[in-house]
């Protein structure tokens, strides 16, 4: 397992170094044609100076070695465009994204699995409830998240004006209490979080429904029913206990996907998370920043997947028969 992790890390580092350099364009041309009215033009000399400053005049292998050794020592460099330490910038933004992702994961996995369980419980008698839920969730899981986001933004934000259109906090707000701050954060995060939740609730629903349906046909469920147990005990101790493992594993595997989903959603809602930062970095060809973000995200995904793997292993030890 550790070999796999180290291997992945090396691949990430290598890709991370070369990918931005393969992209067309030069970051310093972007500094020179700043959007807006103020035009800062850099002379050839100045560009050369910057190149030297960021070590980009050095040969590739040398750049690579510098990059690796710095990254491993935790120094992700200074942003070319913003001229600030990359780690610091990412740290600021990552909080917001993680907030979104974790809240959305919590909501979608909880509600998705609950609905899946209910659906599965009724699936045997070909019920309308199950049929309806299944259709709805299947459609929902097919809609791209930024479209869900736009729809929510237009309806609840622009039309009903229930939620702010952009940002993570009210600008220049001074909070009387921590609770007030919390309310403000929640208010801002609501729509992006809902978007992310809706976009993955279908996934959790389908997974938990399938898992529960197959658990419900297991002999031990008949045993449990024969024992005359109460419905709650039956559902939680016998159905859920056996159906939950793939769902748990999926939560961690989903984190990675959700991070990339967050990128688009954050753009839609102008939410100051890592996704928005990424967009800014890409449009400015800010290699250093891009690399930093990539590195962070890759490491995060690696951690989550490893956690998912470990859960699967644990389940196997318990004799959980993998059906998925």
């Amino acid at each position: 397992m550790w070999q796999k992790i180290v291997g992945t890390l090396i691949v990430v580092l290598v890709l991370n170094f070369f990918l931005p350099r393969i992209m067309p364009g030069d970051p310093f041309n972007f500094i020179s044609v700043e959007e807006g009215s103020v035009t800062v033009t850099l002379t050839e000399d100045q560009i050369a100076h910057y190149h030297a400053y960021y070590g980009m005049d050095k040969p590739m292998p040398e750049q690579f070695i510098t990059y690796i050794s710095r990254t491993l020592s935790g120094d992700l460099g200074i942003s070319i465009y913003y001229n600030r330490p990359v780690s610091e910038m990412i740290g600021e933004r990552l909080i917001w994204t993680l907030l979104l992702v974790i809240a959305a994961l919590g909501i979608s996995s909880l509600f998705g699995s609950a609905l899946g369980l209910i659906s599965a419980y009724h699936a045997r008698e070909s019920s309308i409830l199950d049929d309806l839920l299944l259709r709805m969730m299947t459609i929902l899981s097919e809609i791209p998240d930024f479209i869900i986001g736009l729809a929510l933004l237009i309806y609840f934000g622009a039309h009903l004006k229930w939620f702010p259109l952009a940002g993570a906090t009210t600008a220049f707000a001074v909070y009387d209490s921590a609770f007030d701050a919390f309310l403000d954060y929640t208010h801002h995060a609501a729509l992006p979080c809902l978007t992310l939740s809706l976009s993955s609730i279908g996934d959790f629903y389908l997974l938990s429904r399938q898992s529960a349906v197959s658990v419900l046909t297991e002999p031990y469920i008949l045993t449990a029913r024969a024992k005359g147990l109460r419905k709650r005990r039956l559902i939680f101790h016998h159905v859920l206990a056996n159906a939950i493992s793939p769902i748990l594993a999926r939560i961690f595997m989903k984190m990675g996907g959700m991070l990339s989903g967050a990128v688009l959603v954050e753009v839609v809602f102008a939410y100051p998370g890592i996704g928005k930062l990424m967009r800014e970095a890409v449009s400015m060809r800010d290699y250093v920043l891009i690399q930093g973000i990539f590195f962070y995200v890759a490491v995060l995904i690696l951690i989550f997947n490893t956690a998912a793997d470990m859960i699967f292993k644990k389940m196997k030890q318990r004799g959980f028969h993998e059906k998925l």
Binding site: E218, P219, Y220, A224, A226, G228, H237, A241, R318, G319
Partner: peptide
């Protein structure tokens, strides 16, 4: 069920809940 009429199920691999300890499965009813 189980209170008055109980069944020793046909022995098969998944007849007991794989996620529950044996004593708990006996104690449950």
């Amino acid at each position: 069920r189980w209170r008055q009429i109980a069944l020793v199920f046909q022995n098969a691999s998944n007849v007991l809940n794989p996620m529950m300890k044996l004593a708990d499965q006996v104690a449950e009813p």
